[in-house]
């Protein structure tokens, strides 16, 4: 029961609910609008005559006898073979998350358990690397990759994304491991385990909450990347985001824009599901670095 002093006056309540409502519309409406519009024809979603056409779907009705059509999705997924890009994206994301967590947990664990001065310098170096825009590195990749004939293929991009991911992964896992008491693995070492055995049998079973959170952010980084994937993948190996950018490049002819709209909705859907299931982990990951300062 709130005390009288804490009860809010009506005016303040209206202000708060009004503001929250406004932010809700700003944050959510664009997504629902685009989802709705992706089932229309271009003349409805980008209506010159009357904006209500986008809601009623007048032209869609005329063309397909129904207010909704999957034509944009058919065009994007089948005609433009967007499914290839989807498969590529999931291959890239899967291997990036797997590799960067494997080597990241080892490194992060070592950083959290070693008290020497060089761990500080390694973390600072990682911070500097984290601050650099990935696109600034791309010019350095191209020549060697052309030379060794490894440009354009998925494994190269995966390794590059793993490396770009490492600084962030290290910082995050380092702080998670510091929260796991040192006594745990030290007592295992007293019992005769090597450092690796202590890690394997004592730390691994308790590290999963931190690893899952970090994995989510690695996934997001790989999934959302545009600069690196657009520059390092050949046309046939493109992931979703550069493929969508390419849809836009191929002239704004009738239908093509709707292909891009359908592709955009398709690429947003997995993120939506991700937030739905892992909201708690994402929030805890965002605040992990901050609360400790």
């Amino acid at each position: 029961m709130a005390s009288k002093a804490q009860r809010r006056p009506l005016g303040l309540n209206i202000l708060i609910y009004g503001f929250v409502g406004l932010w809700f519309i700003l944050a959510a409406f664009p997504f629902f609008w685009t989802l709705w519009g992706s089932f229309k024809v271009e003349l409805d979603f980008f209506s010159i005559a009357d904006w209500t056409n986008a809601i009623t779907g007048e032209r869609t009705q005329a063309a397909y006898d129904s207010a909704f059509t999957g034509a944009a999705y058919r065009g994007a997924w089948i005609q433009e073979e967007f499914w290839r890009n989807v498969i590529n994206t999931f291959l890239v994301c899967f291997f990036v998350v797997l590799t960067s967590l494997t080597i990241g947990t080892l490194g992060g664990y070592a950083l959290s358990r070693s008290g020497y001065r060089y761990t500080f310098w390694l973390l600072i170096t990682a911070l500097i690397f984290r601050a650099m825009p990935p696109i600034t590195l791309v010019a350095g990749y191209l020549l060697p990759f052309f030379e060794w004939n490894v440009w354009g293929i998925l494994p190269t991009t995966i390794i590059v994304l793993v490396a770009i991911n490492q600084p962030f992964t290290l910082w995050m896992l380092h702080s998670f491991f510091q929260n796991i008491p040192k006594e745990l693995d030290e007592s295992a070492k007293v019992d005769g385990c090597t450092q690796f055995q202590a890690f394997r049998h004592v730390i691994v079973p308790v590290m999963w909450p931190g690893v899952i959170t970090t994995g989510l952010f690695s996934f997001l980084l790989a999934y959302n990347d545009f600069a690196v994937t657009a520059m390092l993948l050949s046309e046939s190996n493109r992931t979703m985001v550069p493929a969508i950018a390419a849809f836009l490049g191929t002239t704004y002819t009738e239908g093509n824009v709707m292909f891009a709209v359908a592709a955009v909705v398709s690429a947003t859907a997995p993120l939506f599901v991700l937030v739905m299931f892992f909201q708690r982990q994402i929030v805890s990951g965002l605040t992990a670095g901050a609360v400790k300062g």
Binding site: A28, Y223, F226, I244, A267, T268, L271
Partner: peptide, 17 residues
């Protein structure tokens, strides 16, 4: 949940939307 969406969405896709 809904506040996370604009941040989590791919920047290129968010700007296109």
């Amino acid at each position: 949940f809904f506040s996370l969406l604009p941040m989590i969405v791919t920047p290129l896709i968010g700007s296109l939307i």
